[in-house]
């Protein structure tokens, strides 16, 4: 078992990452197709381009049309930038300073509580349903921390 794991490890290490421009090209293509799909949804049920793109790339990976080493490096790089990419969104609040002046404190308190509520309620609800699977259906709920390459 351990040997087998080791073998898969080495073979996956030998897999070559695609050149970064190719990786960017795949991302660009997925974004482009998503931007064609997004307007097909009615205005009452908006689905933004990046959400479609995430699902699309996930499906391409799952059906092995796109290999993970073709997109892995660029994806890891983009994810490492997320906090920085959000700085302009934060600074965008400059444009809403007058709303803040009018009822800022109330809104901010409501947002802080809502954030904590969403995190805690969703986490506890999930733990509850996983507990049900474990105790009622005697299912296996162990989650390994190894990453499939």
């Amino acid at each position: 078992m351990a040997d087998k794991a080791k073998v898969t490890q080495t073979t996956s290490d030998e897999k070559k990452d695609a050149p970064i421009l190719v990786q960017m090209g795949i991302f660009a293509a997925v974004l482009f197709v998503s931007s064609l799909i997004s307007p097909l949804f009615p205005p009452t049920f908006p689905v933004p381009v990046p959400v479609i793109g995430l699902v699309l790339l996930y499906l391409l990976l799952t059906f092995h049309i796109v290999k993970v080493e073709w997109v892995d490096k660029f994806a890891t790089f983009m994810i490492s930038l997320i906090a920085f990419l959000f700085v302009p969104s934060g600074i965008q609040l400059t444009a809403s300073l007058n709303i803040m002046k009018a009822q800022g404190l109330q809104i901010i308190i409501a947002i802080i509580i809502s954030t904590v509520v969403l995190l805690v309620v969703v986490a506890y609800t999930t733990s509850f349903f996983i507990w049900i699977r474990k105790t009622v259906f005697h299912g296996d709920v162990s989650v390994s921390d190894e990453v499939k390459k």
Binding site: V49, G53, Y58, L61, I79, L85
Partner: peptide, 29 residues
């Protein structure tokens, strides 16, 4: 600020799509 901010902001599109990769890697779950 906004002209430059918008350029950085645009890159949230590929960054969001990038999460398909960690998701695929844990397809088992």
């Amino acid at each position: 600020y906004k002209p430059g901010g918008d350029i950085i902001f645009w890159f949230l599109n590929p960054a969001t799509i990038a999460f398909a990769v960690p998701l695929y890697k844990r397809n088992d779950i």
